[in-house]
């Protein structure tokens, strides 16, 4: 956050560990945001077990697995980009960041096809087709859309943040001496990954 203080015109001092600490605290709020939904999910799943199983069959495990692999790989490239910048390998770091963005785009395209298939079949919140189903199934799809939707939103935000970092890296603002912002972006990206690690089995693998 060093530039923040420069801009303010005073208190010029750098505290990378403090910046990471702040980032982690922010991640906890994200974690608990999704945590709240996981809590709702577990209660409803407990109350409507059979219906959740039934509803989960409608989801395409292949899509889910594919997206999991994409996201895990993008996490790898993100981690590599930070390792690269530490070793002062600017080009490699930029390349890795671009790959990460590319994978994130794959993820979203995949998600788009998955959602449109569902919507095409008339399964979306408030649709007549869905309202004819049992309570448990309505709840399952409500949660499915909100949780994967909000996760998708986080992917998009992540892409924007990483793109911003890529520009910074190219310009040299992020370099082997000062890369805490890239680290923070990385932390965010890994959290998005972790959330998917839980979303995936809970929605796609409980058939």
């Amino acid at each position: 956050m060093s530039t923040a203080e420069h801009a303010a015109g005073h208190h010029v001092h750098r505290d990378d560990e403090g910046a990471r600490l702040g980032m982690w605290l922010f991640l906890f709020t994200e974690l608990l945001l999704f945590g709240g939904m996981f809590i709702i999910y577990s209660v409803y799943r407990y109350v409507h077990q059979a219906e959740f199983h039934l509803a989960a069959k409608e989801l395409n495990t292949l899509f889910g697995t594919f997206n999991t692999i994409i996201l895990l790989t993008s996490s790898l490239t993100m981690a590599l980009s930070i390792a690269a910048i530490q070793k002062d390998k600017k080009a490699l770091s930029v390349f890795m960041q671009l790959i990460t963005i590319l994978f994130a785009a794959f993820f979203m395209v995949n998600k788009y096809f998955e959602w449109s298939a569902k919507i095409h079949h008339g399964i979306y919140p408030g649709s007549d087709e869905l309202l004819m189903k049992s309570n448990g199934e309505i709840l399952f799809f409500g949660l499915y859309y909100i949780m994967t939707g909000l996760h998708g939103l986080h992917v998009i935000i992540g892409v924007a943040v990483i793109a911003y970092m890529t520009v910074g890296t190219v310009k040299g603002k992020i370099n082997s001496g000062s890369f805490v912002r890239l680290e923070a972006a990385g932390l965010y990206w890994h959290l998005v990954d972790i959330i998917w690690i839980f979303l995936f089995p809970l929605f796609y693998l409980i058939t």
Binding site: S75, L76, A79, G186, H190, D193, I194, I197, F198, F200
Partner: peptide
């Protein structure tokens, strides 16, 4: 399995 995966991401990827 999800917990193990998260543990790996937290400890290694997230340092």
């Amino acid at each position: 399995v999800a917990c193990i995966k998260s543990y790996l991401v937290l400890t290694i990827f997230m340092h």
